[in-house]
Design a protein around this nucleic acid. Structure first.
Length: 481
RNA sequence: CGGGGCGUGGCUCAGCCUGGUAGAGCACUCGGUUCGGGACCGAGGGGUCGGAGGUUCAAAUCCUCUCGCCCCGACCA
């Protein structure tokens, strides 16, 4: 039996990527379906990943001057209605509360699909003077959007996320904040999730409902489809005007504040799965792996007296060095079974220790990403482990980057564009005139959408891919999740 | 929301066409032998067939409705 055949419960990526994804989510015990349509249960192993993501992000938010707060889950209908574009954008996805107990509510409530309106309402109360600005608040919350098609982590009716909401004195400051957060997201995705992203501006039609400008980071999944991994919105004065967020400025005049909002969600977990996973299952970057090392004692003979104590010492030693360790000392499974199981669950590094190793005062380290095995002297263990974890983290990013580069190309020719989108999916960079008509036509004909217009993209040298008029920008197209 | 597919022990599925009162493998429990890439032997436990209604002496099987999941499209973190 070959190594990749070991996990028979998982569909091969090449056979059916979508089924592979669902198999991994279920078999690795990241999430499970619930009795509520479109809502999943995030199981402990999956939630542990989310907690690591939260910690990393939260540290970054705090470091850039943001503070956490919590706003209500319910929003009165009248508040939602105040920003016209916003209502129009979200109305089809809103869940309503019409009764409390057996009393019909005088004013219906919505379950927040995002919190701009409730937070904007509060900001209007809190902000009086330019001295009150900026307000830099984040909240970790659940939100509900009534989705027609759902998939674990990628799109569920209820999901967890963080939403930052800031208010500023000037347009420039708000814009700076929008971009600061986008850069923060990009840095986070690349260094923590080992998931390379393209940062840029969304087209008008893909913009957040009510925003002046929306920016996103876009990642490329293993099947060549793009995933919007995070968004940051420059809301201009749109919400400030709708919610009367006003302050008296340095010049004594009454002004509307400039606001932003930005968020990433549990969708990131789906991104990690589809960026790094292989036919054997999950591959977790060490920085978000609930267990970075799994210790598998070779349970032979009186191993509980001989091998296990050494394994326990090793666990302690690694834990003291700050490594997240799982010692799988179950008697009921064979070592081979455990190897396959923890590989499937994506643990970056496996440490094997058996009688022979104890004799030679060594351990075996096996990498999940490359499957390389190495014998390491016991006394050099901690260094060898931490070094490998760093190497794996870097290797996953490099591999994902190489994959994205292989699957990114450019064309000026629409016929070629269509062929490329059909054949080998991925990002295609093409000149675009900026018109909604061309964007919509391309989408209708190829299913590809403009993911974003990257900041560093060079000015187009050819006319618009679709209409042949002068092109404004080079846009990144892809089929998206 | 439109088109297609599927719901049978925890999982994968057979049985359905040609109604006769539920089966396999894996998983689980107990005992023993094992254990360096998903061990083996023996003995067990567990499902009324997604749900509701109907046809029938009799329904997993036929009919109607309904719920859920998956895939493909239209809308979205």
């Amino acid at each position: 039996m070959s190594q990749t055949d070991l996990v028979t419960e998982i569909t091969k990526q090449s056979e059916d990527f979508s089924r592979w994804y669902l198999d991994v989510v279920r078999r690795a015990e990241l999430a499970d379906y619930s009795p509520v349509k479109g809502c999943m249960v995030i199981r402990p192993y999956g939630y542990a990943i989310w907690e690591l993501i939260q910690r990393e992000l939260d540290d970054r938010f705090k470091a850039t001057g943001h503070v956490n707060a919590y706003f209500p889950l319910f929003i009165p209908e009248s508040l939602l209605m105040r920003e016209a574009e916003h209502v129009e954008g979200f109305a089809p996805q809103v869940a309503w509360v019409t009764k409390g107990g057996d009393e019909v509510l005088e004013e219906k409530l919505i379950v927040r699909p995002t919190s701009e309106v409730i937070i904007g309402t509060m900001y209007a109360k809190w902000i009086k003077s330019w001295r009150d600005l900026p307000v830099l608040i984040n909240q970790w919350a659940n939100v509900v959007r009534w989705e027609k098609v759902t998939r674990p982590f990628l799109r569920t009716t209820e999901f967890l996320w963080q939403e930052g909401h800031t208010a500023h004195e000037t347009e420039a400051e708000a814009h700076e904040e929008t971009l600061r957060i986008l850069a923060l997201y990009k840095e986070f995705c690349e260094t923590v999730l080992a998931m390379p992203v393209v940062d840029g501006q969304k087209s008008e039609s893909e913009k957040f409902a009510g925003a002046s400008r929306t920016y996103s980071i876009e990642a490329l999944m293993g099947d060549g489809r793009a995933l919007q991994a995070g968004t940051s919105h420059d809301l201009g004065q749109n919400f400030a005007k709708a919610f009367e967020i006003q302050f008296q400025g340095r010049d004594k005049s009454l002004q509307h504040a400039w606001t932003t909002s930005w968020g990433v969600s549990t969708r990131l977990i789906g991104g990690v799965i589809m960026t790094h996973g292989d036919d054997s299952g999950l591959i977790l970057p060490p920085r978000v792996a609930p267990y970075q090392v799994v210790v598998v004692p070779i349970s032979r003979g009186n191993w509980r007296e001989t091998v296990l104590p050494r394994a326990q010492e090793i666990r302690g030693e690694l834990q003291r060095a700050g490594v997240r360790v799982m010692l799988d000392d179950r008697d009921s499974q064979t070592p081979g079974w455990k190897f396959a199981e923890w590989e499937m669950r994506g643990v970056p590094l496996r440490l094997e220790i058996g009688p022979k190793d104890i004799e030679k005062s060594q351990v075996v380290l096996a990498r999940r990403d490359t499957r390389e095995k190495a014998f390491v002297p016991m006394e050099a263990l901690v260094g060898a482990v931490t070094m490998r974890l760093d190497e794996i983290q870097a290797a996953l990013l490099a591999r994902a980057r190489a994959f994205r580069e292989e699957h990114t190309s450019a064309t000026n020719d629409y016929e070629e564009f269509k062929r490329m989108m059909e054949g080998r999916p991925g990002f295609i960079i093409a000149p675009w005139c900026g018109s909604h008509e061309c964007e919509a036509a391309i989408k209708a004909e190829t299913q590809a959408t403009i993911r974003n217009i990257p900041f560093d993209s060079p000015a187009p040298t050819a006319p618009c891919l679709k209409c042949g008029q002068p092109a404004d920008v080079s846009a990144w197209f892809a089929k998206a999740y």
